[in-house]
Amino acid sequence: MIRVVIAEDQQMIRSAFASLLKFETDIEMAAEVSDGRQAWEAIQKLQPDVCVLDIEMPYLSGLELAETIRRDGLPCKLIIVTTFARPGYLQKAMEARVNGYLLKDEPIDVLIDSIRKVMRGEQVISADLAPTLFMKEENPLSEREAEMLRLTKTGMTTDEISKALFLTKGTVRNYLSSAIQKLEAESRQQAVQIAEEKGWI
């Protein structure tokens, strides 16, 4: 029996996945959760065979969760599901050694088949995503610049960032200005959007 944890913040999709998986005689739903923090707790407690993780969830993203699971040496197989065919995301997923990377608009049969395949030691990637494996784009941002954009994304102001990181407001503005310039953006919000779409933050 393959024990599965599903972590997906959209209730309709999560419920649909779980309901359809329950019809499979060789698959058991160990847990279905709505955010990364709940997923991490469930994975530690239940030790599932396969984790199906949404790439974008509150508290911990699917990628952050995958990195944490690998860092702690937990043996479960990992399948990332996403709406986004972004090269940066796929690149990060490969670096986190996920076993599967699927688009959400795939038929449910593909997910079910993928769960069985990763249990056999195979790696599964949606056919539509295969070309993005060859579209590796170097991240021009320094870690500090990426950090500034991540904090900006949360809604923090220059003043709040400077206080949180114990930097002067001028230093924060310089990092943000550099990031905006490197990404050829017109504003910090646009820089955040570009970096996010490319999977760099």
Score class of each variant (00 low, 15 high):
96 A>E: 01
30 A>S: 12
31 A>G: 07
161 I>E: 00
13 I>V: 15
25 T>S: 15
139 N>D: 14
75 P>C: 01
201 I>T: 03
63 L>K: 11
53 L>D: 05
46 L>V: 10
159 D>A: 06
169 K>R: 13
184 E>D: 14
109 D>N: 14
136 K>V: 09
101 Y>G: 02
196 E>R: 08
65 L>G: 12
120 R>M: 08
112 I>M: 11
26 D>M: 02
62 G>S: 12
43 I>D: 07
91 Q>F: 12
101 Y>N: 05
119 M>T: 12
64 E>S: 13
94 M>P: 15
79 I>S: 02
104 K>P: 02
124 V>L: 04
67 E>D: 15
109 D>S: 15
141 L>V: 03
78 L>M: 12
1 M>F: 05
118 V>R: 02
1 M>P: 09
183 L>M: 06
72 D>W: 13
64 E>R: 09
72 D>M: 12
156 M>N: 01
83 T>H: 14
171 T>W: 06
86 R>F: 14
86 R>K: 10
132 T>D: 01
29 M>H: 06
145 E>G: 04
49 D>P: 14
73 G>V: 10
17 F>E: 10
70 R>I: 05
16 A>I: 11
91 Q>I: 01
139 N>C: 10
196 E>C: 01
171 T>L: 12
77 K>Y: 03
27 I>T: 07
75 P>K: 14
165 L>K: 15
51 C>E: 07
166 F>V: 07
152 T>I: 03
198 K>R: 13
152 T>V: 03
84 F>H: 15
195 A>E: 03
100 G>M: 04
79 I>A: 03
112 I>S: 04
37 R>V: 10
128 D>N: 11
172 V>G: 04
10 Q>K: 11
26 D>Y: 08
70 R>N: 10
61 S>Q: 12
186 E>C: 00
121 G>I: 08
133 L>D: 01
183 L>E: 06
173 R>K: 13
21 L>T: 10
129 L>Y: 02
52 V>Q: 04
111 L>R: 06
54 D>C: 08
164 A>E: 10
27 I>G: 06
181 Q>F: 09
47 Q>S: 15
170 G>L: 01
14 R>H: 09
26 D>T: 10
148 M>S: 09
91 Q>A: 14
15 S>Q: 15
94 M>R: 12
87 P>N: 02
164 A>Q: 12
155 G>Y: 08
186 E>P: 00
155 G>D: 04
133 L>E: 00
119 M>A: 06
113 D>K: 13
113 D>A: 14
121 G>W: 05
191 A>C: 00
91 Q>R: 15
121 G>L: 03
92 K>C: 06
33 V>T: 11
56 E>M: 14
22 K>N: 10
134 F>W: 08
123 Q>F: 05
172 V>Q: 02
45 K>M: 14
127 A>H: 09
184 E>R: 10
21 L>H: 10
153 K>P: 06
42 A>P: 11
23 F>D: 11
14 R>A: 14
137 E>C: 03
55 I>F: 05
184 E>M: 10
97 R>M: 13
